[in-house]
Design a protein around this nucleic acid. Structure first.
Length: 838
RNA sequence: GCGGGUUUAGCUCAGUUGGGAGAGCAUCUGCCUUACAAGCAGACGGUCAUAGGUUCGAGCCCUAUAGCCCGCACCA
């Protein structure tokens, strides 16, 4: 073996082989039970960031684990066209080149979009491959490929024909910069400091943060029980700076205590006002256009100004006219566009909607009846959203994305949805297609089955659908997870997956989100280049539970690099050891095991059980910690050292190989490259990926007693090491309790503690460790003090045990095993105490 | 306002059905002991946020309070 693990070469060679031989191509004709994980398609707006690497690592670990458990495993990769996000990026990019979107035709713009797709599709695949994913690249899917387009049209048509999709004119969230409607989920609220203006409307004073919208006012509302204004209800006031008269109305939604208690109603530009307007049959007067500029009934002088610009001028004009009563600072949450982060402007607009109430119900009903969320804490969030669901605005006024497949016949004017790209009307007339595109999440919602091809009838669909597990960051539970659930149920009549793993967001070492503006982001590719993919994978997963946001820093990568180095060096030792003992098989003679052997096998059984349990719960981070502690602490620090003085090196060599073999298989889902390299080196099997995951049941025998005895040795070793450190002259320790120690174990204790052990029949001890009385030859005073201390400890312990056992409530209620353990402990301590006092 | 999460060693975090608090890092002290100084060994370090309650027994269960985080709603 080489001096160090050459991760660069291992990754290059192994990856090349995997890709060339399509090692992880899933077989839809296989007899094995399927296990399918469809990867969340990253937006092709940029290169992958550490969050993608985290997500992909979790999924690859899951799918490798399941593959080793004997499933026909499919990890299906893909990418999302991300209509609005990509369009924002491309517009930005074009602007840098001096090209405005408005100067292009839709066709010209599509060319730029297409170029963008091709560039990033390639990059994203390369990055994923660099992570060592055991993905099936032959099934790579892109939301804008022909297959997905066909799925989208067909799904739309079904929903349209069955009345779940309709067109309506109503108030929507409008982004004046992206110039498109947004769904409720796409609005992010930010707390902002604004001003609350109090403005005279005739005899009334209204409070508003948006004075520029007053030209769109069609009423002033007061609370019906507000005595201050009761007699004014029904009368009219003039909108300031104009002579337009609007009525004073009474509406319960007005908060008496807020502002002046009088609320101006602008049905065209505010969600609440819109609702009031509909209730009172008020006209909606538009004064802000789709670019966010003043228009319509606003006085001409303001036309063309943005709303914010107009606000300043309007306020100045009000002040000049003596109509501005006061300006108070006011903080409030305002909606912003989740893509461009500009203020959202509510607008009345004609859009396509999906009727949600009925579709949502099955998604509510299936929770914990087929659908499991990990961790469970997201169940309430999931249900809360579904129970309060509103119709989904699915149309976007963009040029990139799936065009809405609704067509209108030029002859007979019939309007219909079609699953064909260019349908012809039943009357034979030529049709024109709706100009809008779909919300990018419409196609994402179909992802678990659209990726499996052929619109639901392929062999892939039959074999791999429904899928088993979907892992994604919890932040897109509304955008995506819920929509996949109800879409899957509606379109395929099956849940698209059994398990949803909602993992956290990767943060920096201080717990902050990684962001460009903070400059605290870590590029996964930089970590791979410097430390290797195994290091990135392990360090991303380790040290955190599933339901927490993981923290990442280069320090973690360094620690993991050290761990791999440790594994490599221990392997070198084992190789040399086995060679020296002329052993290459794993045929352990279970009839001839020493205490150390039984102990390490017990530890191995435990780590197999614990690791498997964590994998099954998708809690892989904790499994990483178990594996590291087992290998570094148990195997290297203890067993490897004891092996150096083993009395039966052939047997020990077999155990070392056996432990390494199991450990490599346990670790493989997390560190594919190092484990593949070592497994090939030691066991001549090319891909540990297809070896069975270890099973604790296969290690026969119960070694609990000897294992516990060995723990006593370890305690003794620790004590001697400490004693030696305090007194460097210490060379020999006399140990009583000779019936507990045989020659082979003495060698281990001597080797590990660097203290010579003499067995004594009757020791006059000066210290007691575990069950071992020892004589280190310290002076009488110190000896008496130590023993007196130990006697006190034992008396305390005994008193405690006696008290517990004398407690009838404890004896009657505590589990039997616990009582027995307590009794044994008491007996042990009593006998030890007796021997010390005599 | 409603709901959820979280609070354990200086830091990052484990702690599986309640049965004497753990790891790694950091700090300090020894070591090049022939797999590994990217290492080995040892030590130091915790009123498990606070206050009650249930229990024979609480880090774990219940109630309240506080800090931090998140979601939803309101937001004139």
């Amino acid at each position: 073996m080489e001096k160090n693990f050459d991760f660069e070469r291992a990754e290059r060679e192994i990856n090349a082989r995997w890709l060339e031989r399509e090692t992880f191509k899933a077989n839809n004709k296989s007899d094995k039970a399927p296990y399918t994980v469809i990867m969340p398609p990253p937006n092709i707006t940029a290169r992958l960031h550490i969050g993608h690497a985290f997500n992909a690592t979790i999924e690859d670990a899951i799918i490798r684990f399941k593959r080793m458990q004997g499933f026909e495993a499919l990890l299906l990769p893909g990418a999302d066209h991300a209509a609005i996000a990509t369009e924002v990026k491309v517009v930005e990019e074009l602007r840098k080149q001096g090209i405005e979107k408005a100067s292009l035709t839709r066709e010209q713009f599509s060319v730029y979009i297409e170029t963008w797709y091709q560039k990033y599709l390639g990059e994203i695949c390369e990055q994923f491959k660099g992570l060592g994913l055991s993905a099936d690249w032959s099934r790579f899917s892109f939301t804008m490929d022909d297959n997905n387009k066909a799925h989208v049209r067909r799904a739309f048509k079904k929903l349209y024909d069955e009345g779940y999709i309709y067109k309506g004119t109503r108030m929507v969230n409008w982004c004046p910069v992206c110039e498109t409607a947004l769904s409720d989920a796409e609005v992010e609220f930010e707390e902002m400091q604004r001003s609350l203006y109090e403005i005279k409307y005739g005899d009334l004073v209204v409070a508003t943060t948006r004075p520029e919208t007053m030209f769109g006012d069609t009423a002033v509302a007061v609370n019906p029980s507000d005595k201050r204004y009761a007699k004014l209800v029904g009368s009219f006031v003039e909108i300031p700076l104009t002579n337009k008269k609007i009525p004073i109305i009474a509406d319960e939604s007005v908060d008496i205590k807020f502002g002046t208690g009088a609320l101006k109603i602008t049905p065209a530009h505010d969600h609440n006002d819109n609702a009031v307007g509909i209730k009172h049959n008020l006209e909606a007067v538009c004064v802000i256009d789709q670019k966010g500029k003043m228009c319509g009934d606003a006085p001409i002088k303001y036309h063309g100004m943005t709303a914010l610009e107009a606000r300043k001028v309007v306020v100045a004009d009000l002040k000049a006219a003596g109509l501005l009563v006061s300006v108070k600072p006011h903080s409030s949450n305002v909606g912003t566009c989740y893509r461009c982060h500009n203020l959202v402007e509510p607008q009345i607009s004609s859009q396509w909607f999906m009727k949600m109430k009925e579709l949502a119900q099955p998604a509510i009903d299936c929770l914990n009846k087929g659908l499991n969320l990990y961790p469970k804490k997201f169940e309430k969030i999931y249900l809360n959203w579904l129970n309060n669901i509103k119709d989904w605005c699915i149309s976007r006024q963009l040029w990139s994305g799936h065009k809405i497949p609704v067509f209108e016949c030029g002859e007979c004017r019939k309007r219909f949805a079609s699953e064909f790209e260019r349908p012809i009307c039943s009357c034979g007339g030529k049709c024109s297609q709706d100009n809008d595109v779909l919300d990018t999440w419409f196609s994402s919602a179909l992802w678990p089955f659209s990726t499996l091809g052929a619109r639901g009838n392929s062999d892939d669909f039959k074999k791999f659908y429904p899928t088993q597990t979907m892992a994604t960051a919890y932040e897109i539970i509304f955008f995506w997870v819920i929509r996949m659930v109800f879409s899957g149920l509606y379109h395929t009549e099956k849940l698209p997956f059994e398990n949803v793993v909602l993992h956290g967001l990767v943060r920096d070492s201080k717990g902050r989100k990684m962001s460009k503006s903070l400059g605290n982001g870590i590029d996964p590719m930089v970590i791979i280049k410097e430390f290797g993919a195994d290091v990135l994978r392990f360090s991303l997963l380790s040290g955190t539970k599933l339901d927490r946001d993981p923290r990442y820093s280069t320090e973690k990568a360094i620690l993991t690099r050290n761990f791999i180095n440790k594994i490599w060096n221990a392997s070198k030792f084992i190789e040399a050891y086995a060679l020296g003992a002329e052993i290459s098989d794993l045929k352990i003679d279970f009839a001839k095991l020493g205490a150390a052997d039984k102990w390490i096998l017990t530890q191995l059984k435990k780590v197999i059980k614990d690791t498997t349990a964590r994998f099954e719960k998708f809690d892989i981070g904790v499994a990483c910690d178990y594996l590291e502690r087992f290998f570094w602490g148990d195997v290297c620090d203890v067993y490897l050292e004891s092996a150096k003085v083993s009395a039966d090196k052939k047997q020990t060599a077999r155990i070392l190989l056996f432990v390494l073999n199991n450990f490599l298989r346990l670790l493989h889902p997390i560190m594919p490259f190092a484990t593949t390299t070592l497994y090939k080196e030691f066991f001549d099997i090319e891909d540990v990926a297809f070896e069975p995951f270890p099973n604790a049941e296969e290690i026969k025998g119960n070694f609990a007693k000897e294992a516990r005895l060995f723990e006593g040795y370890i305690a003794l070793i620790k004590y001697l090491r400490d004693a030696k450190k305090k007194d460097n002259a210490l060379k020999t320790a006399n140990v009583f309790s000779s019936d507990l120690i045989d020659g082979a174990n003495i060698a281990i204790i001597e080797k590990l503690s660097a203290v010579k052990i003499e067995l004594e029949k009757i020791a006059k001890p000066d210290a007691v460790v575990s069950e071992f009385k020892i004589l280190l030859g310290v002076d009488e005073t110190k000896k008496r003090a130590e023993i007196a201390k130990k006697i006190d400890e034992l008396k305390f312990e005994i008193a405690r045990s006696e008290k517990m056992l004398a407690n009838p409530a404890f004896v009657s209620k505590a589990p039997a095993a616990l009582i027995k353990a307590e009794q044994e402990k008491l007996a042990r301590n009593e006998s030890l105490l007796k021997s010390l006092i005599n």
